[in-house]
Design a protein around this nucleic acid. Sequence first.
DNA 1: GTCTACACGTGAAAC
DNA 2: TGTTTCACGTGTAGA
Lengths: 207, 207
Amino acid sequence: MEYVGSALDGLFITKEGNSKGRVGRRRYSNDDGTEYKSKNLHAERRRRQKLSDRLLALRALVPIITNMNKATIIEDAISYIEELQNNVKVLQGLLYEMEASSEEGTLSRSEEIDPAEEMRKSGIQAEVEVTQIDGNKLWIKIIFEKTRGGFTRLMEAMTACGFELIDTSVTTSKGAMLVSSCVKGIHGEINEVQRTKELLLQIINGI
Amino acid sequence: MEYVGSALDGLFITKEGNSKGRVGRRRYSNDDGTEYKSKNLHAERRRRQKLSDRLLALRALVPIITNMNKATIIEDAISYIEELQNNVKVLQGLLYEMEASSEEGTLSRSEEIDPAEEMRKSGIQAEVEVTQIDGNKLWIKIIFEKTRGGFTRLMEAMTACGFELIDTSVTTSKGAMLVSSCVKGIHGEINEVQRTKELLLQIINGI
DNA sequence: GTCTACACGTGAAAC
DNA sequence: TGTTTCACGTGTAGA
């Protein structure tokens, strides 16, 4: 790649007056004296202009430019790309974190219990709590994983099993459904609470 | 910026044999015949190399390179920067969405009611529901905006007002707190349900 | 052969 | 002033 001269060196015809166009431009001549410009002169000009344009476009894309120099333009572009790459990485990390925390239960932000979360942790499918209110009334609390039509099927199953619903309230939180209901019990039945609980668990498992 | 020639044109001494160093390099001479290289030759070389190095670094940073050309390197860098910028924008949008949905209540994803949201819509501070379970027992459901220590103060206020709590369940969903409780009522009191409800509302408003 | 891309040395302009 | 940056035309090597 070293410039070593050539037979063509020294054949420049200089100081040519040229009234129009590129005056004073160096000319090139063969041994027979026919003048011609370098063959790739235009191509080289196009190449230079293209590169210049690209650099301009690059400079336009980079927000902070410390200098207008060609080298510094590329330098700034490099640091900008690094910054953008870091940005993307940080944002992806944040997004991943948020998705994870959002998936495993948004109620993690409340200090109270998260039914769905607790259910998944303990591995049980549902949580049933039965409390005897009065002689023939039971207060039941059911927490189970929410499914489409789950509540309806629970109600159908409970009525089919002979539960007489007095008052029922349902609320869902994320993936869990809490059913708080007051049912009429079979008066006089011994161990009614435990039997009702087992029956409810069977119903829920059947859903 | 037009090349117009100069008095120095045509003074190149070519075909100089040079045993050492940069043989054949063009020399430059003054009118007095003293030879010298162009003054900014080394500086120009350094500049070119610096630019070349920057381009190399840029190429190393861009993952996809369609061509090794200088122009295409910059072109690829431009498209890569655009891609990164778009990436950042999309990720920021996603993050903003997730933050918003996470802040305004995760229950928006469940098809059921969102207590906090409904409360805010209707403009009421709390929702109280009282149902008579038995002669001297009441089942109360309270939904109110969750505040720090709100549940504790509610319990203190209720016990201070003479409520005898039999069983209490509390669950929070985002900004709302649902208290489902069974209390002992004053046996024989007429319109007990309505009076209890009003009393609870007063308590909640006092919190 | 042509065509492309590159590095080179250089003059000039800018600071 | 001198230093730096740039565009230019050119030679040349590789497809």
